[in-house]
Nucleic acid binder design. Structure first.
Lengths: 196, 196
DNA sequence: GTCTATACAAAGATAGAC
DNA sequence: GTCTATCTTTGTATAGAC
């Protein structure tokens, strides 16, 4: 096995290590940090038990940190690619981007980084991994808003508000079992941005 | 021991059962559902191991559900007591109420109900317990806004937005280790409500 | 690098004496 | 109602053959 393709020194998707991280991303968003077990990850990735400490000498903490990084980078990419010629349009596009994410959360598959934040316990490295991801989202979204013509300070505050709503809505919608809390909040959010 | 005072058929605070629920509220907000152990609860409440299934035949799930209910009721009380003669003032008071909560979250002690929502896994009873608590917060806050003169539909949307920001800010601030994400979002929130 | 087997600790859950 | 003791399962972590 082990189809390890190396391109420019970067290991491409498809390897065991890679599948393990993907499986961890999924297990985290579904069961949280303490609720995720190696058993789940091994079953979903097809890896053997011994593969864990071979690929991740730091054990569970390292695996989780890398999963948070991967998920964080992926979302950041989506945020940077947000369409919209003015701040209002970017907010509109943000709402559309978030809708399916929140829907997934309503059926049990929430935000991996939020799971790491809430479940980090007293592990500072984990907490910081989550903080870095969230920070990159807020900064990326703020930069996107500036690019669309917003004032830097206004963009920073608006981005922080939007990311907070994104995370809060996922928590609420998972508990509610539907996306209604998000739709209500989003309606107000748009009305509010439009009236500026 | 067992200073069980009964008043009108209701067991008052001070009993073993009661202390166990309090300890569970605390353990949940700190470590999440799967991260909370009976060992923690027993140590903090001073109860014996056998007391668990004596007081909570439903085991861990029942204990967690009751903790979510208690925390939910307590917060709902705070929201109902929010001062303010008009919607803008209520929002202002909300921000002040939330500030210390978010600060606690930044040091590791987040929202008990959020922990239950995120950590509920596939247990529908737990998910629903969290949903009920969140629903009561949103409804209570909306009612308070209506009382302060807001239109019912406007109040419903604004309340959903505020609760989402409350929960999202806790997740972000815990990861950041400080309250900056909340302060940024709150600044924008107030500016936005004021401009109506 | 991949796999099997296993050590060791901690979890939830019960039984039964007091 | 309270407590001690224990069963069973599950989880993390490691050792070592291939």
């Amino acid at each position: 096995m082990a189809v390890l393709v190396k391109v420019g020194g970067l290991r491409m998707a498809g390897g065991t290590r890679d599948r393990m991280i993907d499986a961890t991303v999924d297990a985290l968003r579904r069961n949280g940090v303490a609720g995720m077990s190696f058993t789940d990850v091994l079953r979903q990735s097809g890896a053997a038990r011994g593969a864990i400490y071979h690929h991740f000498p730091g054990g569970k903490a390292q695996l989780i940190a890398e999963a948070a990084e991967r998920f964080g980078a992926e979302v950041r990419g989506h945020l940077a690619a947000l369409p919209g010629g003015d701040p209002e349009a970017v907010v509109e596009a943000f709402v559309e981007l978030v809708r399916p994410v929140v829907a997934a959360s309503a059926t049990g598959s929430g935000c991996t980084v939020a799971a790491v934040s809430v479940g980090s316990g007293d592990d500072d490295a984990l907490r910081q991994a989550a903080g870095t991801a969230f920070g990159s989202w807020t900064d990326g979204l703020a930069a996107r808003l500036v690019m669309a013509g917003a004032e830097p300070e206004e963009a920073s505050g608006l981005a922080a508000l939007l990311i907070a709503v994104l995370e809060g809505a996922q928590v609420l919608c998972r508990a509610a079992g539907d996306t209604e809390p998000f739709e209500r909040a989003a309606r107000t959010l748009r009305a509010v941005v439009r009236s500026r």
